[in-house]
Design a protein around this nucleic acid. Structure first.
Lengths: 337, 337
DNA sequence: TTGTATGCGTTATCAC
DNA sequence: GTGATAACGCATACAA
């Protein structure tokens, strides 16, 4: 494994000169620059990244914290983030927290131990007081998440408004007994969605159907479970706002198994506009988020803070969402032949 | 940011002793061990990982190369790998190659520049002669992939046998005009599947329907396109073996749109047993791979080679697959009331 | 324009 | 048991 020293010897020059060539610095005679390059090629030299990190106090690596990569929302987010990070010359370490407070903190340690230059959190379980100290060691950006009291860049869509629109739509379709599924933990995102849900109900003088079994639902299987719970305990429910297309898909699938008609007996709204929402029959009414743009923006913001260190300040970037109405809430228009 | 030196001063001891405590080494008096620990707590000391890397010539990081994280097969693989790697104390860098030869090599450079200790490749576009040189810098393990001439650990299922079984099943269901979709690039995996497909056909004296439009299909949209191509150019096809549930789902969805009945007019087999294969109606007959076990095994093999350096030798670990017969190939049995 | 010397923070070697 | 000291490989202040 050749070092800069070996290259210097081979070229008959000093380490400094070689270093200058490596880093494209000026004040190197063109002739010597060539000599160095030849020596590097000859020896197959590559700068040792560990040494560079130590010397430069930079890792060119970022960590992305997320609950679970198999959730399509997150895998799409990561896809965009990795591409953008890579374009900026950064590596991406993936950190699945599985909604575990301790794991979340363990991964934040990457910042303190200088293994990454910055962190993007797409889900936060710890309270702000636990997170805040890590800002000493590098920037943190929140994506699709929010934390009470946190003063750092936050990227998301207006979940309250989205839920409000979706719920209004359900009411317009004739639903009168509506249930809300958070689509995640007791995060602020979930709370905001609930706010929007309740607001729409209040405006129409309706009251919500709530059930603790419906909290924390964010997988297909949760959707199945919830549907059973609904049928058993709240058979009059005729419309559901869920926090994810997976939950919606699970509910619809199970509803069909039980002979319920969607949307006639039960209308369902999902979230995220995943591939599955179009493939299901009936197709799923859902809320689209600009995942790619959000991911890219997060990376750019983070990289900016990494390369221009300064005190982080609260900065909310709200992306536009869109309600996509499909068959799971709307009667298909009968073909007139 | 306190260093080991600061801790030493604070404790009134030498760097060496502090280092011994950090690394849980013997030959430190219990009393001093305590003093060091107190000093570390007091100063909030954390070992600097960059310095450690340089000194130990180890990064405790691995790179996972994959085409695209949004493909559920890969996201499930990564999930398992990340968990296992984390349990072994390794970080995971995610590297999306997007089927690009150059990106693949760029990411392999992580090995040469000492940014990772080892690499798992879940897709290979370059030929062996391009990959081989990197083995000088660290171990590489292939997952769900194979390369002609490669002498390194390879983890996969028997795709030829799986395709054979799936195709036989289609024939048993009465299909006589069968088409094959590789479900990926012109990889050895795809070739093996094709072998199995053709073997089953030969045994029954049938000949395949082939179409260049069907190569490289591995997304829902590809599935849609392929179906159109099929309807247009090969309307007599009554059975398809696809390389992924996504493609199968896309085909089925589009077939329904066009008024084709599945499986009556067209039977479809997928691959991977993704969530979607159960949610679609009809549910999709598919081949299950033990993704989690495969991912875990890859990481364990790689970590083994990292921690016990030795010449890599060819070593094939074949996991068991299973054909899951569902409604996309089989008439639903009518309930007798 | 080039080279020398120093330090980034850690751990291993060796002497005490 | 403990502590000086020398690397690990690189990049920069400073001298020439």
């Amino acid at each position: 494994m050749p070092t800069i020293e070996d290259v210097a010897k081979q070229a008959g020059l000093s380490r400094t000169t070689v270093s200058r060539v490596i880093n494209d610095q000026p004040y190197v005679a063109e002739e010597k620059r060539q000599r160095v390059k030849e020596a590097m090629d000859l020896l197959g030299y590559v700068p040792n990244s560990s040494a560079r990190r130590l010397r430069n106090q930079k890792t060119e690596t970022i960590a992305i914290l997320l609950p679970n990569i198999t959730n399509p929302f997150f895998s799409h987010l990561i896809e965009a983030m990795e591409i953008k990070a890579s374009a900026w010359g950064y590596r991406v370490i993936i950190c699945q927290t599985h909604e575990d407070e301790k794991k979340e903190l363990d991964y934040l340690e990457l910042l303190r131990t200088k293994q990454v230059d910055g962190v993007i959190m797409t889900a936060v379980r710890n309270e702000w007081s636990k997170i805040k100290p890590y800002l000493t060691y590098g920037p943190i950006v929140l994506c699709n998440e929010n934390v009470r009291g946190a003063n750092l860049p936050v990227v998301y869509v207006d979940h309250e408004q989205a839920a409000y629109e979706a719920t209004r739509h359900l009411i317009q379709q004739g639903c009168r007994h509506l249930a809300y599924l958070s689509g995640g933990n007791d995060s602020i995102v979930a709370q905001n969605r609930q706010k929007g849900f309740l607001k729409a109900l209040n405006q129409s003088g309706l009251s919500p159907v709530l059930d603790e079994k419906m909290e924390g639902a964010y997988t297909i299987d949760h959707g199945r479970d919830v549907l059973h719970s609904l049928v058993q305990h709240h058979p009059n429910v005729d419309g559901v706002f869920t926090g994810s297309d997976e939950v919606a898909a699970g509910m619809i699938h199970e509803a069909k198994q039980l002979g319920l008609r969607v949307p006639d007996d039960l209308a369902v709204v999902g979230f995220d506009n995943q591939a599955i929402s179009l493939l299901m029959s009936p197709s799923i009414t859902t809320v689209e988020q600009p995942v790619t743009e959000m991911g890219e923006h997060c990376v750019e913001t983070l990289v900016h803070y990494i390369e221009h260190p300064s005190v982080l300040f609260r900065q909310e970037i709200v992306f536009r969402h869109q309600l996509l109405v499909r068959d799971s809430t709307q009667q298909r228009v009968t073909m007139i032949s």
